[in-house]
Design a protein around this nucleic acid. Structure first.
Length: 407
RNA sequence: CGGGGCAUAGUUCAGAUGGCUAGAACACACGGUUCGGAACCGUGAGGUCGUGGGUUCAAGUCCCGCUGCCCCGACCA
């Protein structure tokens, strides 16, 4: 798309935050803070978020069905599982006025997670062993009233989450699916460009199971978690559950995903069971599997940037190439316009910097926005195209055919 | 939830010890010059200094409450 037509702008006077992702994403016009931990996504930021979510979606579709559940839930659902008072990040609505108060109890929950929603939903369609297993997922906005938000997109009060829930007729079936989900998650993080630095760490399984849960932790200096690596057993632990030994190598990491066994906690609360092949009632076992796309976006900025700006992996960059035109001579503009159209025809996504601003600003913004390849067309390139990688220093003059081989 | 800091133009900020007819840069508008690393010159528009009280001849500046934001810690199915 043409930058002259794109809503949003880079700015020189952005506030410098402690976290790089909050600073750079706002400076580059990807996001806009509304209040602590709550951000608008502007076009460039939404492009990245959408690409992240689509990669997750493609991989999740291999093991589950996508649904979209509501953001609001009735208070009674949370009373059913007795989490109305124990989950302290719950955001509750207050009655709008006295009239609303008369009509109903007027208090709703803005869902921080969806076990309370998905269990009764699946219960409506599953009765027999023939209906199991089931796995559904959604990608949606979640609300958590965190006592302290911090670090830009890495911990907010409103954030994006992919959450999957699986339902099984037996523990064995659950375990097999749980292992399979790990493989799916690995593929997702590989495609997002952080696979090599993302490890699986054992973590607390929470209140409903004695087993460990598994966190997908991306090694990151500015992450909130500390993980420990046991070289003998080749195992990572979240520090919270690491055995009390001092032999571990510890490092900082950011939790980008978490999968955990739920046992029959929720299915029991909802009296959700099935009829087995012998005609007898049997318990249903559940698992829950999360990835935070907005947090992933923040973590990737934390890990991949330099003093000039962000450096996006190709798979989630807002575009593949950043095309700069310098000068207003008819020939130059014509060549740049034609190149833009040709690249689009070839299926390339292009940010075309056709703005009436100085060359210096275009170069600077290209680095800040951080798409993988930069192209320049000017009087100096003399009918050819200057090519440069965001991560490289040297430029080269190429023809259109040569360019297609490079990108 | 504890501790520290901050709140002034669209944005980022400067305004010691009270004297303000409140400034700068960036952004914006107009004119001109310029076109390979956030160009330059000129002109202009833009503010009830977060909010409610208080002290004072006088409050952006001092005191108290409230609200919001940033940072540290606790917390984080």
């Amino acid at each position: 798309m043409r930058l002259s037509k794109l809503f949003g702008k880079t700015t020189r006077t952005a506030k410098v935050y402690d976290s790089v992702n909050a600073t750079l994403l706002q400076k580059a016009g990807f996001i806009d803070m509304v209040m602590a931990g709550v951000y608008n996504y502007l076009p460039l930021g939404l492009m990245v978020l959408t690409k992240i979510e689509n990669i997750i979606r493609e991989e999740m579709n291999t093991v589950a069905s996508e649904v979209l559940m509501t953001s609001l839930s009735p208070r009674s659902f949370w009373e059913q599982t007795q989490r109305i008072d124990t989950v302290d990040v719950l955001m509750k609505t207050s009655p709008a006025n006295d009239l609303a108060k008369q009509k109903n109890d007027s208090e709703y929950i803005l869902n921080p997670t969806h076990e309370e929603m998905v269990t009764p939903l699946v219960q409506k369609f599953v009765f027999s062993y023939k209906d199991l297993p089931q796995a559904v997922y959604q990608i949606q906005t979640k609300f958590r009233n965190e006592p302290r938000v911090k670090s830009g997109l890495m911990r907010g009060r409103e954030f994006r989450m992919k959450d999957m829930y699986s339902f099984h007729a037996s523990m064995d079936d659950f375990k097999a699916f749980y292992e399979k989900s790990k493989e799916v998650y690995k593929r997702i993080f590989d495609r997002l460009g952080i696979g090599k630095e993302t490890v699986i760490a054992l973590a607390s399984g929470g209140a409903y199971t004695k087993e460990y849960s598994h966190e997908f932790q991306t090694i990151c200096e500015t992450g909130e978690d500390t993980i420990c690596f046991d070289e003998e057993t080749n195992t990572y632990y979240n520090k919270e559950v690491a055995p009390q030994e001092k032999k571990f190598k510890t490092m900082r990491a950011a939790e980008v995903g978490n999968i955990f066994p739920l046992g029959d906690k929720f299915t029991k609360d909802w009296k959700f069971s099935y009829t087995n092949a012998e005609g007898k009632e049997a318990p249903i076992y559940m698992g829950s599997y999360g990835i935070g796309p907005s947090r992933v976006m923040g973590v990737i900025v934390e890990k991949m940037h330099d003093e000039a700006g962000m450096i996006w992996p190709t798979s989630i960059a807002p575009a593949e190439v950043y095309l700069i035109v310098i000068g207003k001579e008819a020939d130059t503009v014509k060549q740049a316009d034609a190149l833009y159209e040709e690249l689009k025809k070839q299926g390339k996504s292009v940010l075309y910097d056709d703005r009436d601003v100085s060359p210096g600003q275009k170069f600077s913004d290209a680095d800040l926005i951080g798409v993988p390849y930069r192209l320049v067309v000017s009087k100096k390139t003399d009918g050819k195209i200057e090519f440069k990688k965001r991560t490289g220093k040297e430029t080269q003059l190429v023809s259109f055919e040569e360019l297609l081989k490079l990108i």
